[in-house]
Structure formats: structure tokens, C-alpha cells
Computed example of a mutant assay.
Amino acid sequence: MYQGLLHAHNGFRWLVLIALLFAVLLAVSGWASKRKWGRADNLSGLILVMIMDIQFLLGIVLYAFVSPITKAAFNDFGAAMKNSDLRFYAVEHILLMIIALALVHIGRAKSKKDVAPLKKYKASAIFYGVALILVLAAIPWDRALF
């Protein structure tokens, strides 16, 4: 079960990155060109939120229930904080990803709420862009399965 969930979580990462990159590029280009907010802009944010939510659910199941890494970390949390690998998975990875998820949700909400297209694009570009940076920083690239 652990290996299957881990592979799903690793594979889904690429969908998250593609959706984030696409949403950021669409928002930045719309902001720069001052174009009217369209269906594709709205859809990219919606798809991004859905993909991020699914990835978060996979990650939470791994984190809280099946990962031997987090189980080891929580058995002796003090020792885990001295071990960079255990600390990364027990604290840093999940914290950065939760913040990124919150930023994506805030960006989506702001893009739905604002009336002016430039405000929608600006909010989307900023919130999705920062989320992309956090996600890239929090991915364990040394353990990446391609």
C-alpha cells in the first residue's frame, strides 16, 4: 500500500507542476497583455485547485497513516529534528506544501471575487507564482521518481 501511494504521489507531482506552471504563465501573460478574463483563465485555476487538492489528500494519507519515514520521525521527534532527512519529511515538506495549497486557494478565490480582469490576473500571478516557488522548494528532488 505504501509503495502504491508513494508512486501515485510522486507521479501526481508532475500534474501539479504542469498545472501550476500553466496557470502562472496564463496569469502573467494576461496581466502583461491586459486581455479580458476568459474561460481558459478560469478553468486553469479550477483545474489547478482540484489537482492540488488530490495531491494533498494523497500526501496526507502517506504522512499520517502509512509512511515509515514519518512514523520513524514521530517515534522520537527530538532525534528527528536533528536528522535533516527526517526533519524534511516530518516538518518542512508538509508545511511548505500546506502553505502552497493555501496560496493556490487564495489566488483562485481572489480571481473569482475580483471584477476587474487586471486584478484577477495580478492575484492569480502572484499567489500561483509564490505557490510554484514553494512547491519547487519542497519537492524531494533527490528521491524523485521519473
Rank of each mutant, 00 (worst) to 15 (best):
I54P: 05
D142M: 11
G78N: 12
L118P: 09
G45K: 03
H93C: 06
K113F: 08
S67M: 06
L6D: 06
L25E: 08
A72Y: 02
A131R: 04
D53W: 13
F22V: 12
L96N: 07
L95E: 11
K34L: 08
P140I: 07
K113M: 11
F56G: 10
D76E: 10
A90W: 00
D142V: 11
L57S: 14
A131M: 05
M50P: 02
D41N: 14
H7E: 11
G129Y: 01
G107S: 03
Y89H: 04
F77P: 01
D76K: 04
K34R: 14
L48P: 01
W31F: 07
F74K: 11
R13E: 08
A40Q: 09
V16P: 01
D76H: 09
I51W: 03
A80D: 04
A40S: 14
L5I: 11
A138I: 07
L57R: 04
A79R: 09
N10G: 13
D76N: 15
F88P: 05
V66I: 13
L26Q: 07
A23W: 00
G38N: 12
G59H: 01
L62E: 05
L5N: 06
I98L: 14
G78Q: 09
A90F: 00
F65S: 13
N83S: 11
A27H: 02
G78F: 03
F12L: 14
G129S: 04
F146M: 15
A125C: 03
V49N: 10
R39M: 13
F146N: 12
V24S: 01
D76W: 01
V130L: 06
L62R: 03
L103G: 02
F74Y: 13
A109R: 11
W141A: 10
A102Q: 07
F127H: 05
S111L: 07
T70V: 14
V24R: 00
I60Q: 11
N10I: 06
D85F: 15
E92S: 07
G45A: 10
V24T: 03
I98W: 08
N75A: 13
I60N: 06
I54D: 08
L25K: 05
A72R: 05
W31D: 00
L20R: 00
K82Y: 09
A102T: 12
R13N: 12
V130F: 03
K110Y: 02
S29V: 12
A100L: 08
G45T: 04
R13F: 12
A125P: 02
G78M: 06
A23H: 02
A19R: 05
Y89P: 01
L132G: 01
K36F: 12
V135M: 05
K113D: 09
A123Q: 00
S29E: 06
R39P: 13
I51M: 05
K71Q: 14
M81Y: 10
F88Y: 11
K119D: 11
A73P: 10
I99T: 15
F146V: 11
I98R: 08
W141K: 10
A19I: 08
A19C: 12
I139W: 09
H93Y: 10
F88K: 06
R87Q: 09
A116L: 08
I94G: 04
D114C: 08
I106Q: 07
Y121S: 01
A123F: 01
S44K: 01
L145C: 10
V66C: 03
V49S: 12
L118F: 07
L101T: 13
A144D: 07
R13G: 13
Y121M: 02
W14H: 13
A64M: 12
